[in-house]
């Protein structure tokens, strides 16, 4: 395990990401106050997706990992997205 590169991420980056995550958490609470009708769920999911993207990229170091691992995670996101879309084929057309 000697040939792997180690990235030192400055604390300031982590602090910025933390602030961003807190901001999005605040937003996802605030957005429930606005009447979005059928886009309520979509809005909540969008914010959650941005947050998990930040966590995966910086806190879990995907940004510095090999491409195939990023592809795997991206693929999982696509599966998840497809599952949600198919579920809403029921709710929107019921």
């Amino acid at each position: 395990m000697t040939n792997e590169k180690h990235h030192i991420v400055p604390y300031s980056t982590y602090a910025i990401i933390l602030a961003a995550l807190l901001l999005f958490t605040f937003l996802s609470v605030a957005i429930t106050g606005i009447e979005l009708g059928e886009f309520t769920v979509a809005g909540a999911l969008l914010l959650a997706t941005i947050k998990s993207y930040l966590v995966l990229t910086y806190f879990m170091h995907l940004k510095f990992d090999k491409a195939y691992i990023r592809i795997m995670v991206g693929f999982v996101f696509l599966v998840f997205l497809a599952v949600i879309i198919i579920t809403f084929l029921d709710y929107y057309f019921r």
Partner: peptide, 25 residues
Amino acid sequence: AFVGYFVWGHHMFTSGMSGTAQYTF
């Protein structure tokens, strides 16, 4: 493994799911 993720609704054809979802599943 992949397509198997998207067929779950066939357990629910009589549950009151929407027609669109029924055809898709």
